[in-house]
Every structure is written in structure tokens, then in C-alpha cells.
Design a binder for these strands. Sequence first.
DNA 1: GTCATGGTTCCATAATAGTTGAACCATCCT
DNA 2: AGGATGGTTCAACTATTATGGAACCATGAC
Lengths: 109, 109
Amino acid sequence: MTAITSLPHPAIEDVRLTDVLFALSDPARLEIVRELADGPLSMAECGATNPDLPKSTKSHLMKVLREAGVVRNEPDGRRRVLSLRRSELDEAFPGLLESVLGARTDPVG
Amino acid sequence: MTAITSLPHPAIEDVRLTDVLFALSDPARLEIVRELADGPLSMAECGATNPDLPKSTKSHLMKVLREAGVVRNEPDGRRRVLSLRRSELDEAFPGLLESVLGARTDPVG
DNA sequence: GTCATGGTTCCATAATAGTTGAACCATCCT
DNA sequence: AGGATGGTTCAACTATTATGGAACCATGAC
């Protein structure tokens, strides 16, 4: 049984490359993805970089990432666990996540 | 000497990953990049997929790609030659272009 | 049950991005 | 010089996206 509070996630075959690229094209979202690359985090744990980000805003950033197929958002007690859909994305778009996570974010110098 | 009609291009060190990802996140722009992956094209040659795209619109798409650091736009007689900044991007963001160009664009099935 | 916690959703507003005709500009050709 | 060609820029409009407070919803603790 799926809990009512589960949020919809696209099947990996339905994930569009351009949507993934768009989701990753925002600095705040990319930072979240970088954090999740080290393992799942709850909402509260995630986004340590932006400590004073309103929760509705953070929730919206997560929604964009989730609907693009980049992250999973699973209920766990009264928290939610965010995780990068890494293995699925690696199959769908080989090398993409690796290159993005390995790349510099800011201009050099 | 640089001709007056040259357009500004960011130095590769100043190119931001998020700007590149954003530029690639639009289907029309991504299609242009795919075409340019096979070699430089003039404006008129490029965008064969969208034959009835107004030229101002196409010019704007190119501007986004150019300002993000993805393509070069060099005057050549009364035409302009568009080219992918491939080797520069490969150095700045190893593997990124390869994975994007190699990936499927549309959902499977 | 009540309450605090952790989070989503709704709504209104602000900001950014896309579209396109018209005007413009430079080049080549005669 | 004039005209056609290939393209950029401008301006106005539309559309999409971001932001964040307030309301709401589950869960766990008591």
C-alpha cells in the first residue's frame, strides 16, 4: 500500500533530458543535488547552505527536482527523506550526473 | 583587429555550469547544439528542424547559447558562422557535452 | 484527545524568459 | 550608387518560473 502522503514521481523512462538539465540549472537546486550525492537527507538536514530559506521555497525547489525525476521524496515518519535517483539517472543518461557533480560551479579565479 | 560586428563571448573561465545547463535545457536550443556537434553552420543552415522559425526568434536562441558560453558566433562575409565551443567546454566541464549529446532526448516508448 | 514537529499546498505577487514584427546594419553584387 | 541577402537589435507583449506567508495535513509524543 502506498501512503496517501506519497508524492508522485515520474518513471525513469518518462524523464526528459531537458527537464533534468533545467532542474540542475538553478544554483540552489544544484547545491541540493550535490548534498544528496553523499546520501539521503531529510528536508531539515538538507539545504544547510541556505539556512534561512523559507520552507515553502525549499519545498518548491524540491518539487521541481522531484518532478524532473532527479530526486525521490519518501515519507518517513513525520519527516521526508530526499534521495538522488542516481542509479536510475545513470542508466537513463550515462555520465551526466558524474560530469555535473564533478564540475566546478563557479567561474575560476 | 576585431570587426565591429563581432558579438561578445564569455571567456571559458567565466562560463558558469548552471548557465550552460540552462542553455541546454530548452529543446530548441538543445537541437541546435546537436546540429552544431557535427560541425559549424551558418544561421540559415542551422535549425533545419524548425524551418519556419522567425529569424528574430532563432537569433535570440543563439544569443542565449552564446552568452552561456556554449556556441561561438563569428562574422563571415555577410553570414555568421555558429560553432560549438566543444574543446573549451570539454576542458571546463569534462564529460558534460559528451553525455548530453549522447543521451536520449525524448521519453522512451 | 491535545500539542509540537516537519513538511506540503495554496495563493498572490515579483521576476525572469520566450516570441515576434519591425527597424536596423553590414556585406556583396551589379 | 542601389538592391538583395543574412543577420542583429528593439520594443511590446505573453508566458513561465520564483518567492514566501498563511493555511493545511500527518505523524509522533504526551
